[in-house]
């Protein structure tokens, strides 16, 4: 599962993309929904948990927390940005 990072999430993770293992070989729970993915990413990068307003897109469309995701989806984390 590929995750594109925007705004401050890019700075928190330190890269513009992130790959989340979706195979059970790693013995980790595989996120099945947007909210599970957020939780999983927040465990690895606790700074992400501080973002109260974080939009998530699945295959280039805004997704609610309960949306189902799979290994082939392209996810984007899009926090609000304020600079001008």
């Amino acid at each position: 599962m590929t995750i594109l990072l925007f705004g401050i999430t890019k700075d928190i993770v330190g890269s513009s993309t992130l790959s989340v293992p979706t195979s059970s070989i790693t013995n980790r729970t595989i996120p099945k929904t947007v909210s599970e993915l957020k939780k999983c990413l927040g465990d690895t990068y606790p700074e992400l948990n501080k973002l109260s307003s974080l939009a998530v897109a699945v295959n280039n469309a805004y997704a609610e927390d309960d949306q189902l995701i799979n290994a082939f989806d392209e996810i984007a984390l899009i926090p609000p940005v304020s600079g001008g």
């Binding site: 705004g7 401050i8 973002l51 109260s52 307003s53 939009a55 805004y62 926090p79 609000p80 304020s82």
Partner: peptide, 11 residues
């Protein structure tokens, strides 16, 4: 897109 204003320390 962003229902509520982020707090000042987030971004």
């Amino acid at each position: 897109l962003y229902p509520t204003m982020p707090n000042a320390e987030e971004v």
